[in-house]
Design a protein around this nucleic acid. Structure first.
Lengths: 234, 234
DNA sequence: TAGTGGTCTAGACCACAAA
DNA sequence: TTGTGGTCTAGACCACTAG
């Protein structure tokens, strides 16, 4: 299984960018030059450049050349925050209760969302309290292979999210947000009235391409808002 | 200026998706077939398919074929996107109705959120439709001093957001998301049942420190998800 | 005029899946 | 065995920019 040639060229470009040898605004070798350098056809070199352009790392200027783009600090947009820290930063007290802990093989829906099939996962359900009032129900699935000691943690000392990021650095995440009506169980656990909708946040996290955790968070809508700030570069 | 051949092929595919002739899961003609049909080489047909795959509308399965992807209505929280483009990129039709347009001095709540006091703002209310079904109510306040010709735009040709970014480049934004129960008016306009919660997105946008627009977007929860992807810098 | 990216062709070989 | 997508080649012509 050898990688295709265009991947090699793309890796070459990436390494130049990572090592900062090619800095912002630098004009990279023309497609013809890259092709010659790698004994490839121009179409193949172009495909490598295509990939980097799609990633937003390079920018083409017709008739002129291809240049290193300025980097946008996009990661700060929706920070993956720790609920304990957030509550403490509001000057409130944080408490949690673990409702259940177990080891299982995920059902289809979870497995597909989480790209884990026929693998063991841990499941844990936690309720978080802010000043003794429930503010979040956390239903979390964790890749048991990658994080074998997950269930042995004392979650009153370290949150699940804190522990996971310490074991496997968070590199990618997919987040989705919906508004839902709570189920009976949810209503009971979050001490909700009849007509209170919930914010449902679903998040899959990955560490270097490996799925680590799939979590569904429910927040009573009258107590919670998800916020995010956006800033362009410069 | 005639469009390149691969664009024609891409448009052909897009039209099949928009008209729902090719539905979810449908296996589209092979690259070779497309090439023959358009008297193009396979590489050119492939480039058209590439484009649709990158847009997330098609999915390749090696050795088997290329298929129409299932589409969940979702929107990016991170990127400030244009709802019309998003709907179109799902192969659906977009329509809008302007409910009201006016010039006013903002009340306190709006003024504070929007850091505009004693200044004129335009207010506009728009309903967006995806395939004739209402998907978003947009209640927007615009800084009249910075964007004097806002109300004169034809919003069936350009969305409010498109026009604003063309006049004043978006540099900062604050976004917040809540789950709420719809008011009577909202229920009526979004054609909602009694028990459908709404996702309420509030966004303030700025251009180089100047407030440009404050917008509240309501989405029926059964039709909408907000999503976002997170990637660390390399 | 020389160099660049944008497009395009008409072939080719491969690995893989389905019949 | 056939058809598919994945990769690749060695040319080509174009419009455009810059020296």
């Amino acid at each position: 299984m050898k990688p295709p040639k265009y991947k090699l060229i793309a890796e070459f470009i990436k390494s130049k960018l990572e090592s900062m040898i090619w800095q912002e605004g630098y004009k990279i070798p023309s497609e013809t030059e890259l092709a010659t350098q790698f004994s490839a056809s121009r179409m193949t070199a172009r495909k490598a450049v295509d990939e980097m352009v799609n990633l937003g790392l390079l920018e083409r200027v017709p008739s002129v050349g291809t240049f290193v783009r300025s980097i946008l600090p996009q990661s700060s947009l929706l920070e993956i925050k720790n609920i304990a820290d957030e509550i403490l930063s509001r000057g409130h007290t944080h408490k949690m209760t673990v409702l259940s802990k177990l080891l299982l093989v995920p059902n289809d829906a979870i497995a597909i969302s989480f790209s884990l099939q026929n693998k063991n996962v841990f499941k844990i359900i936690i309720i978080h309290f802010e000043n003794d009032s429930p503010i979040q129900l956390e239903e979390r699935y964790v890749n048991a292979e990658k994080v074998p000691f997950f269930l042995q943690q004392d979650f009153s000392k370290i949150t699940a999210h804190q522990y996971l990021t310490s074991v496997a650095p968070l590199t990618e995440a997919d987040i989705s947000v919906e508004a839902v009506m709570p189920t009976k169980i949810l209503k009971h656990n979050l001490q909700l009235n009849d007509n209170t909708p919930c914010l449902k946040v679903t998040r899959s996290t990955y560490s270097n391409g490996q799925p680590i955790s799939y979590v569904v968070l429910y927040h009573p809508a009258n107590k919670f808002r998800l916020t995010s700030a956006y800033r362009t570069a410069q």
